[in-house]
Design a protein around this nucleic acid. Structure first.
Lengths: 361, 361
DNA sequence: CGGTGTCATGTCATCGGTGTCATAGAACGC
DNA sequence: GCGTTCTATGACACCGATGACATGACACCG
């Protein structure tokens, strides 16, 4: 592989002048610049970033760690699916800034995280982004010498800058839209209570009701998702039975995520309840492979993973440039909007509910 | 950041001895080793791979390029989904070999490929893996100085070592299984003719028929997938009409991929043909988010993307180690098996077909 | 007891760029 | 016309590891 000295020799100049040409320093005459360019082309010269890194202590590298805690067992869950969109968003922004991305995946083994950090540090990554596969709280091992760290899709207690989805807003905008479409009794099949998104989404649900002057009725809120645990469908099925048997049952079921909505479709089908004629259904996440494939197509909330990755990368780049503003506010949220598809009907709030329909029919 | 000299100073030895300790050379006394270790711990010393790379011209990096040609428009297609599994497989193997992965994504702009190669070469990547999002033929730009290159999920005419799915085998094993389950009239909604997989899968379909002594009937083979092009559903719908109107219609429809199977479900539903009672359906790819979610769950062929990535990485590692055997055989295939779910029924070949059912009913 | 081999460690140069400083010549000002 | 500034370039050290080679201390052997 050709070196800068080879180029210098061919061009009849010093190595330093070649360096100047590469870095676009102005103090090079046009004639010299041209002959250096010719020499570089002739040798197909490619500079060594290792040498550059050593001298300038700037590696042009940013590290990425994913897959640390894949607590979702395999199966219907699209494991890794959100992450790819986040990673693509990150890559997009970094590439635009001339930064190369080093990635390492724990493969679900959190004990590897320190090793991965070490590897990234050996390569003198100038910043590190840690990506989780769902919105969660994390606690990273103590990290010496990691100056610039950004969390994506997760957050910690130490105040590390983080980019997270605005779950509260997403649920709020969905439920507000349901109310605008005439729904008054809105069932909510929640995520497990231990997830960060649980409380946030419940808060959004309640805020939408409050703003519409609809009292919050706890009987409409039932545990839905168990994160793919065995026996989940039994749990969901009994939750749905409970809701259907209410004196004043819901006209729509909000599901904690799209995967749960799939299960709900199946359960409603088995009970002879048609979607959306007798029961509207909404999800959360907008996994398009799911939401667009289901029949009827699923109304859900977009979780802008790509945008989240972009924002995390933008944040990191600003921190690396020494911008103090960004690190000052540790949590940055990304909003996602509701996506209205066929699984939700517009209804007249005065018309009878499913229950009374059944009685009358 | 501490250097090897800082460590040497604290430990009271020379830098070279510290280097020996790090690299596990035997010729270091236990006492010296211990004091060096203590010094490294005290300083939280992390060696610089840039310096190491310069001296030894071994970077410990492998580059990855993805997303070069995303010819699938966004939408129902799970863009990037196969790639993530391939990338994870690659990462798994490389990490086990102490290699760090540099990734770059073209974001669908093939013109960026030369730039990406250049960046990887600047970092002196010792090998490069090029990943495509579906089985395709590619032609890479001429690459000087890239010694070790492996293609994953694609192949070229230049004989670059490649790891590709065994589409012929997958379709063969699926159709053989259908025959074993009593199906004799097997419809085939194909991929577009320009895809590599088209011919391979058709070949597998034909081989399975031949081995079972069933004559190949071209009227059962119709164009299905248009890769998400507008008007696709019209095309698919007319293909299905054609098959249903045959004198002796198929009892099962093999779809070119799972996405097409989704469309077929919808079309059959709209025509009042029940799956699988009146018509069995099979896909190809085993996108689990699709195949497990559909009702009834889809019988399909697993495309082992993770394994493909692993194999590509293993191949690259062997090439980097100078193993001549591997590069000798340029194409390595990975087999995937059929996954049997509810969308295919077992039937008695003697029982009447859908058509005669309809007439009788 | 001197020669030889092994062990443990040190010295020095080197990988390929870039920062710092020096310098030769041209341009400029008075 | 001579000092000053600017322009274009070169010389040289240095970033942090490691390879090649040297060296001193022992152990072993005849």
């Amino acid at each position: 592989m050709a070196t800068i000295y080879d180029v210098a020799h061919i061009a009849g100049v010093s190595a330093k002048t070649v360096s100047r040409v590469m870095n676009g320093d102005a103090l090079v005459s046009d004639k010299t610049r041209a002959s250096v360019q010719a020499a570089m082309d002739k040798l197909a010269y490619i500079p060594s970033s290792a040498a550059r890194t050593m001298r300038s202590s700037k590696s042009g590298l940013v590290g990425l760690i994913t897959g640390a805690i894949s607590d979702a067992p395999s199966g219907i869950e699209a494991v890794g699916l959100p992450e790819i969109y986040i990673v693509q968003g990150i890559q997009r922004v970094l590439a635009a800034n001339g930064i190369t991305l080093l990635i390492s995946d724990t493969g679900g083994d959190a004990s590897k995280v320190p090793d991965l950090f070490r590897t990234l540090q050996e390569h003198r990554a100038e910043g590190i982004i840690y990506v989780a596969d769902h919105h969660m709280n994390i606690a990273l091992p103590p990290l010496a010498n990691v100056k610039h760290l950004v969390l994506a899709n997760c957050r910690d207690e130490a105040g590390t800058p983080a980019v997270i989805p605005d779950d509260e807003y997403g649920q709020y905008t969905l439920v507000s839209g349901l109310i605008a479409r005439g729904h008054r009794r809105i069932g909510f099949l929640t995520l497990p209570e231990n997830l960060v998104a649980y409380g946030l989404r419940l808060g959004g649900y309640q805020r939408a009701l409050r703003e519409a002057g609809i009292p919050y009725d706890p009987v409409l809120v039932r545990r839905g998702d168990s994160h793919g645990a065995p026996g989940e469908s039994v749990l969901v099925s009994s939750s749905i039975d409970h809701l259907l048997d209410l004196e004043n049952p819901p006209t729509v079921l909000c599901c904690g995520n799209d995967r749960l909505a799939v299960a709900v479709y199946g359960i409603l089908r088995s009970k002879g309840v048609s979607v959306p004629e007798q029961m509207s259904v909404a999800g959360f996440d907008d996994y398009r492979v799911i939401s667009e494939i289901l029949f009827p197509a699923l109304t859900t909330v977009d979780l802008p993973y790509g945008r989240m990755g972009e924002k995390a990368a933008e944040l990191l780049v600003e921190m690396m440039r020494g911008d103090p503003d960004m690190a000052a506010s540790p949590r940055h949220t990304v909003k996602g909007e509701a996506v209205w598809r066929d699984s939700v009907t517009v209804r007249d709030p005065k018309v009878a509910t499913l229950k009374s329909n059944r009685r009358n029919g």
